[in-house]
């Protein structure tokens, strides 16, 4: 039995197979509509999330399965003090697979140690969010046609942004990738990622503070939100939250094929005037999230589709 706890749990071949399956689903979704008949997905969401939870539920419903679960810790036994280990032992009898979001880092990993069903990490604090990474990879592969030879710009909160950390680790396994990190000094990428991932693998990268200057060279610009919940100090959050705002004027600096991606939700870091730009693909990206989660459910349930 496999789980997906970290974005690197699947090696490159396994990741590519999963993305291939997702692309097959995009091409012919009706061929998959009854594959999970009689199967149940439990969504165990200990903190609020609209997109990820509904995306998982849509994925399972698209496959003909059904869903059950809770959407906040208050409406679960966690409010009574039940441990993650005990919860997952019980849920293992109710469902065939589960997706867990938890504010504490490592909670889905603990769950996987006690579970009798595959556990998918749907986000654990500021740590990992592997299905977002798979979504990002599928988006780039679909819209760029490759996951190699790309210059990726990462902009905003690179310190606490888990999607950015996971994307760097995952893309670093492909040939010809280079990164441009665009952030204020206070939100720079942590040293350990630079040392243990980028420098260890000899991946070219540079760190800048000015977004416009680097835009013409980028194949992908990945914007992030400065997240209030990752700060212990409200003052720091207020000072940094509006530091990069992508608008029409800045988009004029970008190449005609550059993709603008964002894990969403967006607050104000991309103005709504950019939404109509064909290079803005963040809503398409959210759509791909459903397909990649469908492929993931099928993979972890070891379902063969003829």
């Amino acid at each position: 039995m496999r789980h997906l706890i970290s974005p690197l749990d699947f090696n490159v071949e396994e990741t590519n197979s999963l993305l291939d399956l997702a692309e097959k689903i995009i091409t012919d979704p009706s061929a998959f509509k009854n594959v999970c008949n009689g199967k149940k997905l439990a969504t165990l969401f200990y903190e609020p999330s609209t997109r990820t939870r509904l995306s998982f539920e849509a994925a399972m419903l698209n496959l003909g399965g059904s869903v059950l679960g809770f959407s906040s810790a208050d409406s679960s036994s966690a409010a009574k003090g039940e441990s993650v280990a005990d919860t997952i032992r019980v849920i293992s009898s109710y469902a065939d697979i589960c997706a867990m979001r938890h504010p504490k880092e490592g909670a889905p990993m603990v769950a996987s140690q006690y579970s009798r069903i595959p556990v998918i990490n749907a986000g654990d604090g500021g740590h990992n969010h592997p299905t977002q990474t798979l979504t990002d990879l599928l988006t780039i592969k679909q819209l760029k046609g490759r996951l190699t030879d790309l210059k990726i710009g990462l902009c905003g909160d690179l310190k606490f942004g888990r999607t950015v950390h996971s994307l760097i680790s995952s893309l670093s396994r492909y040939e010809g990738i280079s990164f441009v990190m665009i952030s204020p000094e206070e939100l720079k990428l942590p040293d350990y990622i630079k040392h243990e991932v980028l420098e260890e693998k000899g991946i070219p990268y540079k760190e800048v503070t000015n977004l416009e200057e680097v835009m013409p060279d980028l194949d992908v610009l990945y914007m992030t939100r400065v997240q209030r919940e990752r700060f212990f100090n409200e003052e720091d959050y207020i000072r940094l939250k509006d530091i990069y705002i992508l608008d029409k004027k800045k988009m004029a600096h970008a190449g005609k094929d550059m993709l603008v991606m964002h894990p969403l939700p967006r607050v104000n870091e991309i103005t709504t005037e950019v939404d109509d730009d064909p290079r803005a693909v963040y809503f398409k990206q959210a759509e791909y999230g459903v397909y990649v989660r469908m492929a993931l459910i099928l993979t972890l349930l070891e379902m063969e589709v003829q």
């Binding site: 441990s83 993650v84 280990a85 504010p103 504490k104 880092e105 490592g106 909670a107 604090g125």
Partner: peptide, 13 residues
């Protein structure tokens, strides 16, 4: 020592 770690709330781990 990470206050966000699951071990900070689940003492038996």
């Amino acid at each position: 020592k990470n206050p966000r770690c699951i071990t900070s709330i689940e003492q038996e781990l």
